[in-house]
Amino acid sequence: MSDTIISAKHLDFYYGETHALKDICLDIPEHNITALIGPSGCGKSTFLRTINRMNDLIEGTRVTGSLSYRGEEIYAPDRDVTKLRKSIGMVFQKPNPFPMSIYDNVAYGPRTHGIRAKARLDDIVEQSLRDAAIWDEVKDRLKKNALGLSGGQQQRLCIARALAIKPDVLLMDESTSALDPISTSKIEDLAMELKKAYTIVIVTHNMQQAVRISDKTAFFLLGELIEFGDTEKMFSQPTDKRTEDYITGRFG
């Protein structure tokens, strides 16, 4: 059994008057892929975004309860959010490379965190692109604009960019939903590979994907965590009726 890396205890989250997450208790284990599933608006993305505090960007949000990363409170008042986000990287739904060269995209994070030496940046860029399984495709055009890549390549570039700051946890917010099946399977393979070194939390609409790649699955419904456990067990013998209805496709 792996150690818990992120732990939510009685976590509530509000957008203004909307109670978006209700009393969530969830321990995410290290070096695993944890999938968050559920119908649209169930709170799975909101939960993902509380982990690296991306929800801070929205005005009028409020958090109560406890959410910790390696034992330290994520919402502690003296928490350095930039350091937190350096440890907890994120890949978004739509590929969002910056409108600059492939090299600069990957180097952006390290540069932001103070790495200036050219040789070191070169190393980081190459290693990150290799880890994201895109090096061979882009090594001859590192100085070209990243927006010229295909959608699947852009998303792997975004993964490389996230890896370049050497995170501990990687959050993937429906990161394959905008891609074709071939690109999707490449990224799934990549995730399986990456979990050796990182802890991965994915939000997905696609239940087959959850089954294929995740170790643990959490099922959210209307802001509540209905069921959480080993993926295999949850999809073969769910304990809650609502989970069963969802995974057998009766709603959602």
Binding site: G89, M90, P97
Partner: peptide
């Protein structure tokens, strides 16, 4: 696009 900003913030930029 807002996505650029999000990506940068998620990388730990202020």
């Amino acid at each position: 696009p807002k996505e650029y900003e999000e990506a940068s913030l998620a990388l730990g930029a202020t």
